[in-house]
């Protein structure tokens, strides 16, 4: 994705349209001001042109950093297939952190996990309707 500079520019352009200000770009790091609810703060986005897999490691593959607050997985198909939450991610997120994979989230609470399922019946009609319609 980010081996192509036009995709980097697309990200910067999206941010620029939201904040109506310029975005500073150095190599693959974007820096800009953003109001998250407490006034303008400095935000950074690092664009990484690597694939991630919990099985393939080493050169050219993305290593998850430590102390992640949240992992967001969307349309995350890659060489290893569609990516879902795995033990490596669960280890890397901090207490109170979350892994969000499309319609499901896993929240880390100490040594436990809380699972939240979000489903919209308009887009998931079929599988879930079949399940719901089982009359016990």
């Amino acid at each position: 994705m980010f081996t192509d500079e036009k995709n980097e520019d697309e990200v910067a352009g999206k941010i620029r349209r939201i904040i109506s200000e310029e975005v500073k770009k150095e190599e693959k790091v974007l820096t800009f001001g953003f109001d998250f609810g407490s006034g303008r703060e400095s935000a950074t986005v690092e664009l990484v042109d690597k694939n991630y897999s919990d099985k393939n490691k080493g050169e050219g593959w993305y290593e998850l950093p430590d102390k992640i607050g949240m992992v967001v997985l969307y349309a995350s198909q890659g060489p290893g297939g569609t990516l879902v939450a795995n033990e490596e991610m669960k280890s890397a997120i901090v207490d109170g952190g979350m892994i969000w994979e499309e319609t499901t989230a896993i929240i880390k609470k100490g040594n436990n996990e809380e699972i939240v399922v979000w489903v919209n019946n308009n887009s998931n009609r079929g599988y879930f309707d079949d399940f719901i319609n089982v009359d016990f």
Binding site: M1, N7, V11, I18, L64, K67, G69, L83, V116
Partner: peptide
């Protein structure tokens, strides 16, 4: 569901095939 402090002090990692910066 997630404290703003958790996202203020730690990384948000987006793994995907798009340029979906809006979620983050």
């Amino acid at each position: 569901l997630i404290s703003p402090e958790v996202l203020r002090n730690n990384l948000l990692v987006y793994i995907g095939s798009g340029t979906d910066i809006e979620y983050a």
